[in-house]
Nucleic acid binder design. Structure first.
Length: 484
RNA sequence: GGCGGCGUACCCAAGUGGUAAGGGAGAGGUCUGCAAAACCUCGAUGCAGCGGUUCGAAUCCGCUCGCCGCCUCCA
């Protein structure tokens, strides 16, 4: 298994600290507002990666935090006139709601900053004692020059950063790059008691504290959005390694951004689309597929078109799956006939599994893995086109279904039944007809067709079409689909 | 200014040395009462441009052009 490690800038063979186990920490969200699609990308991507580790038999401990105290939360609380902890609670709940819809599994551990104040204080105290941090008027700062490795993750040197001169200058700090570990609270702000007076943790320290407490001094993987590389993750390394004297993280993983008009989607630019509003227009599975169809480190340009394409892609998948299932429920024909050219279908299945794993093993290439799924789909369609029959053909197709289900389970897309997909479309496309009335019209049309009353049959078809339902006449029955 | 990334068909996108996956759109075909959908087939002699290394380059090196990100809160 190979993972691109931001620390080295290379793909490296993944060797976990303890054989067979993975300790993984993902930076979650600061809960001061609803999630946009960029947050969703990070969550979905690392969810798929986590599922793949599990599939590969690793015993994975997966932690994802909530930053539930910070300036933005305090500002939001003041703005909305509600207590800061209610702001946090509200958006944590909203996060769960959005992510569950997108098929993101809860982490094994979901620690919150405010639940680790004691641990944070212990680390800050330790850093002060070791001379890596200093106290000024109730604030505690980490002394960046005291940590020689500073800049190793983001690939920059201290002198260069100072030259940039975009750093806000706080005269009290010994070095402009020094960052807050502990911030004293003003009157009326949330505060916890500490050796330096009432205050709250700085942003970076919570992650160090939670990693240390729940996963250990050195963990296998730490992940998050690429915008966290500097300063957040750089600072985490500095404070953690200065404190423990041990390497903090073995593999750093960072996902790429979502862009709008080629610009990074962000709150400050105002060019963001919330998960909620996207899910009003698209089925969650379409969104998840859209996110996984591009490699996690590449940028994704956001617009309707690729989401609509993802819908078509799913339609194609479920059409084929339905066809496969139709074949499987049919009694196996007496005639043993595997069409010529398909004798080695089992070999194709074996190679599918191999290629799927190869793709995922290569830095979690979900885009390629999905490509392989469609190669298999094409193969299955060709096989069924050739009108196979008999027990062996049945076994081969049931094995194919099994293989597809396994891959689908890892990605958590292509994971429903064709009927569930159609029902979901009925809802998301806001079709005014329900299943029963559609079935009733189909039955009426069937009778018309039996009497060769083509005019009436065509009328019904046109009527359904106008309402967004397409009919598909198969031998002996008629299926309906939501037009997309 | 410093550091990093990207540029593959009409669109999206995988591919980091061995002769261009996959999806969407399009064209042709099969099926059909006719349709539609679906399915099958086709589709880049070519990977921003130029030069170099190599038996061999989208992949490595150099230069040029264009775009983006980080350096400040950010997934």
């Amino acid at each position: 298994m190979k993972i691109y490690n931001t620390l080295t800038g290379r793909k490296e063979t993944f060797v976990p600290l303890a054989a067979g186990s993975v300790n993984m920490y993902v930076c979650g969200v600061t809960v001061y507002d609803v999630c946009h699609i960029g947050h969703a990308r990070s969550a979905v991507v690392f969810d798929a990666i986590r599922r793949y580790f599990h599939y590969r038999g690793y015993n994975i401990r997966f932690a994802k935090n909530f930053t539930d105290i910070d300036d933005k939360i305090i500002n939001k609380a003041a703005h909305d006139g509600i207590p800061w902890d209610q702001v946090a609670e509200k958006y944590i709940n909203k996060y769960y709601e959005d992510m569950h819809r997108l098929g993101v599994q809860d982490a094994d551990l979901e620690p919150r900053a405010t639940g680790h104040i004691r641990e944070i204080i212990d680390i800050v105290k330790g850093l002060v004692e070791k001379g890596h941090a200093y106290v000024i008027e109730g604030d505690v700062y980490f002394s960046v020059p005291s940590f020689p490795g500073y800049g190793k993750l983001s690939g920059r040197r201290l002198e260069e950063m100072l030259a940039g001169a975009r750093v806000e200058v706080d005269e009290r700090k010994k070095n402009p790059m020094d960052f807050a570990l502990w911030k004293s609270s003003k009157e009326g702000e949330p505060a916890w008691e500490s050796p330096w007076g009432p205050g709250r943790p700085g942003w970076h320290i919570e992650c160090s504290a939670m990693v240390l407490k729940h996963l250990g001094e050195t963990i296998d993987i730490h992940a998050g959005g690429a915008d966290l590389i500097f300063p957040h993750h750089e600072n985490e390394i500095a404070q953690s390694e200065a404190y423990t004297g041990k390497p903090f993280v073995r593999y750093w993983m960072h996902n790429g951004f979502i862009t709008v008009n080629r610009e990074k989607m962000s709150k400050s630019l105002g060019n963001f689309f919330t998960v909620e509003e996207i899910l009003q227009r698209f089925d969650p599975e379409s969104v998840r597929l859209f996110l996984l169809q591009t490699h996690y480190r590449s940028p994704i340009e956001f617009s309707n078109e690729p989401l609509e394409e993802a819908e078509h892609t799913l339609e194609r998948f479920y059409q084929s799956l339905e066809r496969l299932e139709d074949f499987l429920i049919l009694p196996a024909g007496k005639l043993e006939s595997v069409p010529p050219g398909f004798e080695d279908e089992e070999g194709i299945l074996v190679s599918f599994k191999k290629r799927f794993m190869q793709a995922m093993d290569d830095d979690f290439n979900t885009a390629l893995a999905i490509g392989h799924i469609f190669e298999l789909i094409k193969e299955i369609n060709r096989f069924l086109d050739a009108k196979p029959s008999g027990a062996r053909a049945g076994e081969m197709m049931s094995r194919a279904k099994q293989e597809l289900a396994e891959a689908a389970n890892v990605l958590n897309v292509f994971n429903r039944t064709p009927a569930q997909w159609q029902r979901a479309l009925l809802q998301i496309k806001k079709i005014e007809l329900d299943e029963t009335s559609i079935e009733r019209l189909i039955e009426e049309r069937r009778q018309a067709r039996a009497q060769k009353d083509w005019k009436r049959a065509d009328e019904i078809r046109a009527e359904l079409d106008a309402k967004g339902i397409t009919l598909e006449d198969k031998t002996g029955s008629t299926a309906w689909r939501v037009k997309i």
